[in-house]
């Protein structure tokens, strides 16, 4: 995939010159990154490299006291510093978080939480809605969708919660999905299942996949953007970068992945 930023095709996400400081410490130093519509981009970096801060800026969840400059354009509109509540339907970004506990309302059954996007976004009602909800849960690899629909977050395991969040994010049918380490809590079989699902469901939207695992990223994404200490150190097509990593950081990650696998 060639990253042509066509004037006619607005990229799903365009981050340019994003800097971010918290309490006087600069944590992001001019991050540039583009997710063209219909593509999947991996944002790769070790913990503390600024991946999650970048994701936060895209989602409209900056940490308290953060000062950000630059631009974050979702579907062409600059939304830097605009919280999700005040965005339009077009510029709201769906998210799958790393920590699945707070990602579900602990008091509302999964069925009701999954019904919201299906009703408001998919326009589904009644039996069609219920069928679709159960179908989505089966798609993310949950074997007993009816029981899960009745359950609240506390009755599910970490992996099950993570998959429910994935289902809700997919049902939201947003133009862009940000997945922040969505598979770390899952076993490998489920991870493979969720990766396949993300692959299938982002064909006509776009995905920013945040991870430290280059092997998983390589199976899912067309492009790699490598972040180190708040700077983009590498940006290119997956195959090229994996075959010949230019930065020391990516080379280390690739070597480690080959050593374990």
């Amino acid at each position: 995939m060639i990253p042509v930023v066509d004037a006619e095709v607005t990229p799903a996400l365009q981050v340019s010159g994003l800097t971010l400081s918290v309490a006087g410490t600069r944590l992001l130093h001019g991050v540039d990154l583009t997710v063209p519509a219909g593509s999947r981009v991996a944002l790769i970096g070790a913990s503390g490299s600024g991946k999650s801060l970048t994701a936060g800026a895209v989602l409209g969840r900056l940490p308290a006291g953060a000062v950000a400059t630059g631009a974050v354009r979702v579907a062409g509109d600059d939304v830097l510093g605009v919280p999700a509540a005040r965005r339009t339907a077009r510029t709201r970004v769906a998210a799958i978080a790393q920590d699945p506990l707070a990602a579900l309302n602990p008091l509302v059954p999964v069925g009701a939480q999954l019904a919201t996007p299906l009703r408001h976004r998919g326009g589904l009602r009644g039996a069609a809605l219920r069928t679709r909800a159960a179908q989505l849960l089966t798609d993310v690899g949950l074997t007993d969708p009816d029981r899960v629909l009745r359950s609240v977050a506390g009755e599910l395991s970490g992996g099950q919660r993570q998959r429910v969040c994935t289902a809700i994010a997919l049902a939201s049918a947003a133009g862009l999905l940000v997945a922040d380490e969505p598979t770390t809590a899952l076993d490998l079989v489920t991870q493979a299942q969720v990766v396949r699902l993300l692959h299938a469901h982002t064909a006509d939207s776009a995905l920013l996949f945040i991870t430290h695992d280059v092997a998983v990223a390589a199976t899912l994404c067309d492009r790699f953007v490598v972040l180190e200490a708040g700077r983009v150190v590498e940006d290119g097509p997956t195959a090229e970068l994996v075959a010949a990593p230019a930065s020391a950081h990516l080379r280390e990650l690739v070597d480690a992945a080959r050593a374990v696998a």
Binding site: L59, R61, R92, V93, A95, N105, C165, A169
Partner: peptide, 17 residues
Amino acid sequence: ERWVLSWQVAGATRAQV
């Protein structure tokens, strides 16, 4: 909490939230 965000993205109304 993060579910608030995912409800908003899912199109929940302000009253619902």
